[in-house]
Amino acid sequence: MAATPTVTVVSGGVGAARFLNGLLDAIDPAKVTAVVNTGDDTQLHGLSISPDLDTIIYTLADATDPERGWGLRNETWTAMGALERFEAVRPEGSAAATRWFNLGDQDLATHFYRTARLAEGASLTEVTSEIVAAWGLGLRLLPMTDERRATVVTTTTEGDVSFQDYFVRLRHSVPVTDVRFEGAAQLSDTARHAMTSAETVVIAPSNPLVSIGPIRSLDGTDDILSARRDSVVAVSPIVGGAALKGPAARMMTELGHEASVVGVARLYASIASVLIVDPADADLADAVVAEGMRCIVTPSIMSTPKIARTLADVTLAAVSTR
């Protein structure tokens, strides 16, 4: 029997979490590392919040609220509700007691711990490892960097805003004219090693522009991936011209990209040799090939654990059998 490969997954939040669930069902979790976007990270109420890291942790721990699709099961909102009393006295321009970014009472515990450990001098990589262990997970989760690298979105209505302002406060409902990444951050040494040493690298079905984009914006990431392109496989987050969750398709159109698997191929052709697409896009397989990527068609809407597991198996086989 062939040895189980080591796999590094370049990850955003929800789509990556679902893919990782299938992957951990397919292979030993100890063989899996995820390098996770932190361009979405934010500070609220003095707390350090890492939405993509936490989404993956809660999903893999089977703790996510199944109805909302985010946050924790059986969550309560007492602390956020109590902030309402301060809204009448808050000075104009103050961000104190803001409630547009809802933090559940259980979720607050994660942010309390992260914030306190960072204040003690621990790196985000170290703190994330501790939080993963506290949730009893067997894989490695690595933030892309231990430094600040913030996604800034330029909108037609409010100018430049943070990603969380765009995604949560504005409900990603306003047109976007630009996305950029601020902060002189470096790809962490552990993330760099994970992407260079794994036998297979998977680009998760995450938003190419604001989930995978921040990781690619760090010096060296694209060089690493392009140098090992034959062992890099991407899963398209676009199915039938639409994103399964979030604004990926609309953002691609607004920023001048084609909102299709062909548009995804154009973004990834220099760093990945294979693109996995759903049967809904089987008619575009030749167009993907024309962009320089091998195209594999398999169900990619992870509506059941079985589909997620099969997608993981197909994804790994895409490069391991070449």
Score class of each variant (00 low, 15 high):
198 A>R: 05
259 A>R: 07
206 S>C: 08
249 A>Y: 00
247 P>N: 12
205 P>G: 04
240 G>F: 02
260 S>Y: 01
210 V>L: 11
246 G>P: 05
256 G>L: 09
221 T>Y: 12
214 P>A: 07
205 P>H: 02
234 A>W: 05
241 G>C: 11
248 A>S: 01
254 E>N: 14
194 A>L: 12
213 G>M: 09
245 K>I: 07
229 R>D: 11
240 G>N: 02
233 V>H: 03
204 A>M: 07
221 T>D: 10
202 V>F: 00
197 S>N: 14
199 E>P: 08
215 I>L: 14
248 A>E: 04
259 A>N: 03
217 S>W: 04
212 I>N: 09
205 P>K: 00
246 G>H: 08
231 S>W: 07
258 E>A: 13
193 H>I: 10
248 A>T: 04
227 A>F: 13
224 I>Q: 03
199 E>V: 07
205 P>F: 01
240 G>M: 07
194 A>Y: 06
226 S>F: 10
217 S>V: 09
201 V>A: 08
216 R>H: 12
202 V>W: 03
230 D>T: 14
204 A>C: 11
226 S>A: 15
258 E>Y: 12
241 G>R: 00
212 I>Y: 04
232 V>S: 00
200 T>M: 08
214 P>K: 07
214 P>V: 04
256 G>A: 10
216 R>E: 14
217 S>H: 14
212 I>P: 04
251 M>F: 15
234 A>E: 08
207 N>W: 02
253 T>N: 15
201 V>P: 03
237 P>K: 01
250 R>S: 14
197 S>K: 10
251 M>G: 08
225 L>E: 05
242 A>D: 14
195 M>A: 08
198 A>P: 06
232 V>N: 02
242 A>Y: 09
227 A>T: 15
247 P>V: 06
259 A>Q: 02
233 V>R: 02
255 L>P: 03
204 A>K: 00
254 E>T: 01
208 P>C: 06
239 V>A: 09
244 L>D: 00
240 G>Q: 06
234 A>I: 05
200 T>N: 07
255 L>E: 09
